[in-house]
């Protein structure tokens, strides 16, 4: 998607991995509305980053640009050294959207197999069974997710995001629609992913996950207002 990407083309020192996520002056403007003011950040592999902000602060815009779904007005974004949206970036990045997206004509199990095999995932069956069990939707494996409730579709979406290989996990508002047990299971699954070395970027307006993160990026009206240690008390104060 991004052809000339200085962030992606930046020289990498021998033996040093490229940043998991890197944006250089990443901007999105709709007419006169600045959805995201020029943003330059670098997220290293293994970091657990939470992107917080009130409604309309630019969290989803940032996440969707990193996923390659929105084209930046200016600036560049790279995932594991590859331009956001490129095939290599798509291989490295798993994106779980805020609005669960499922096919109308596939069952939950069929969704899982289709996504896993499109990503040439080895040993996906065991991983899928584990995820469905943890998320409490294994008994619905043969049902059509399009007929699920919002919460069950969110769990489906999370399972699809976690069943495939990834280096960077990008999750937009993961807790919306989940019941308490679902939230707890998700927090544990995200922790496991981080333990295994994945980079987590989680956008949320809820501050429950902040203390589990290693870094927090706060946005307000499209502007970066904080980038530092994840301290929920401080963030709550900042966001008012």
């Amino acid at each position: 998607m991004v052809a000339d990407n200085p962030a992606a083309d930046a020289p990498v020192a021998d033996g040093v991995a490229a940043p998991a996520v890197e944006t250089v002056g990443l901007t999105k403007v709709y007419g006169e509305l600045v959805a995201l003011a020029p943003l330059t950040v670098q997220i290293e592999p293994g970091e657990r980053v939470v992107v917080v902000g009130t409604n309309g602060s630019g969290k989803t815009t940032l996440i969707r640009m990193l996923a390659g779904l929105l084209e930046p007005t200016e600036g560049t974004a790279a995932i594991a050294g590859d331009p956001a949206g490129s095939i290599d970036a798509r291989a490295a990045l798993s994106y779980v959207p805020d609005d669960p997206v499922v096919y109308d004509d596939l069952s939950l199990a069929e969704h899982i197999e289709y996504v896993a095999r499109l990503h040439e995932t080895e040993g996906w069956q065991a991983r899928a069974a584990y995820l469905l069990d943890r998320l409490g939707i294994d008994h619905r494996a043969d049902d059509l997710p399009v007929r699920f409730s919002r919460g069950l579709r969110q769990k489906t979406s999370l399972a699809l995001g976690l069943v495939r290989p990834f280096e960077v996990l990008l999750v937009d508002e993961p807790f919306v629609g989940l019941d308490q047990s679902g939230k707890a299971a998700l927090v544990e699954l995200l922790g496991e992913a981080a333990d295994e070395g994945a980079t987590l970027v989680i956008a949320t307006h809820q501050l429950e996950f902040v203390d589990r993160a290693t870094r927090c990026i706060a946005l307000r009206d499209g502007e970066l207002i904080y980038d530092g240690a994840a301290d929920s008390a401080k963030i709550a104060e900042l966001l008012g």
Partner: peptide
């Protein structure tokens, strides 16, 4: 689909690292 789900009431163990999902972090290629 070739899913092998757990029997009712049985919790599945976490799969060994290094096979799939985040456990392949750092080794993902297109």
């Amino acid at each position: 689909p070739a899913l092998r789900l757990a029997a009712p009431g049985v919790s599945l163990p976490r799969p060994a690292a290094g096979t799939t999902g985040a456990s392949r972090a750092g080794a993902v290629a297109a």
